[in-house]
Write a protein that binds this DNA or RNA. Structure first.
Lengths: 119, 119
DNA sequence: CGTTAAAGTGCACAGGTACGCACTCATGCA
DNA sequence: TGCATGAGTGCGTACCTGTGCACTTTAACG
C-alpha cells in the first residue's frame, strides 16, 4: 500500500507528477469519452438510467453500435447494469464521470460559442 | 446573441440535450486528452509554460513525437506559442482545459487507488 | 411448445493515429 | 559567412477502433 504522503522531493509547484500508470489510466478514460456516440450515451446515462432501446432511439445510432459501445463502457467499468424483465438497464457507475462529461461539453460550448478562450 | 436565460423548454431533468455539433466539439477535445504523451504535455503546461526541449526531457518521449503532438495541440488551439530567442515557449490557452486534465487524473487516481467507485 | 422481442457477438473492412527515420527550416553566435 | 542547435515536417508502417452485416443467445408471453 503506497502511502498518500506528499512527495519527498524538494521540487515544488508540481502538485504531484503523474506517473505512467496514472497517465494511462486517465487516457483510457478520456479515450472512452472521445467518441460522439459514446459521449452521447454517457450524457444520457448521467441524466437517468436507460435500457438499450432507449439509448438507440435517443442517440440515433444503430443497435449494433450502441451495443458495442456499451460493452466497452461495461468493460471499462464506467457503467453498470441491472436486469428488469426483458430489459437491461444501464446506469453510470461513478458520479465523477458525469461531471467530467458535463465539463467537456461546457468546454466545447465555450469554444463553439465563439468565445476565444475565456479566462 | 443567445441569452444566458435558463431553458425556455418545458422538458426537465435534461439541462439541454447536446446536439451533434456540441458532441463532436467535446469529443475532439477529449481525443486530444486520450494520449499519454499529450496528456503529460498538457499537464506540464498546466503547471507552467515550457519549450519543446523541456517537454521532451520531462515526458521522456522523442523529439519527433513531442513536436507532432504539439502540432496537433496547436492546430486544435489548445495551446499557444510565443518565441523567445531560439526557443518556442508553449502554454495552455484555456484555463478550463487545465481543470479538465486535472479532473481526469483525479478520476484515474480514484480508480487506481482501488476505490470501487466512490460516491 | 413455438414465437417474438431485447440484447449481445464474430467477422471483415475502412479510416484514423502514433511513432521512428530522415530531412529541412530557422536562428543566434563565433 | 559558416556552424551548431532548436524546432518542424513527409513518409511509411504498425496498430487500434468504429461500424455494418449476419448470426446467436436469452427470456417473456401466447
Amino acid at each position: 500500500m503506497t502511502q498518500a504522503q506528499p512527495v519527498p522531493e524538494p521540487s515544488l509547484h508540481h502538485p504531484n507528477e503523474p506517473d505512467t500508470e496514472r497517465l494511462e489510466a486517465a487516457t483510457s478514460t478520456f479515450r472512452m469519452l472521445a467518441d460522439p456516440t459514446r459521449l452521447h450515451i454517457l450524457w444520457l446515462l448521467s441524466q437517468e438510467p436507460a435500457d438499450v432501446s432507449q439509448l438507440v432511439a435517443r442517440t440515433g445510432a444503430s443497435r449494433t453500435s450502441v451495443s458495442q459501445h456499451l460493452a466497452k463502457l461495461r468493460f471499462s467499468a464506467l457503467v453498470s447494469t441491472r436486469k428488469e424483465h426483458r430489459h437491461v438497464i444501464y446506469s453510470i457507475s461513478d458520479g465523477h464521470l458525469g461531471r467530467l462529461v458535463q465539463e467537456g461539453l461546457n468546454h466545447a460550448d465555450h469554444r463553439v460559442s465563439g468565445e476565444p478562450t475565456h479566462e
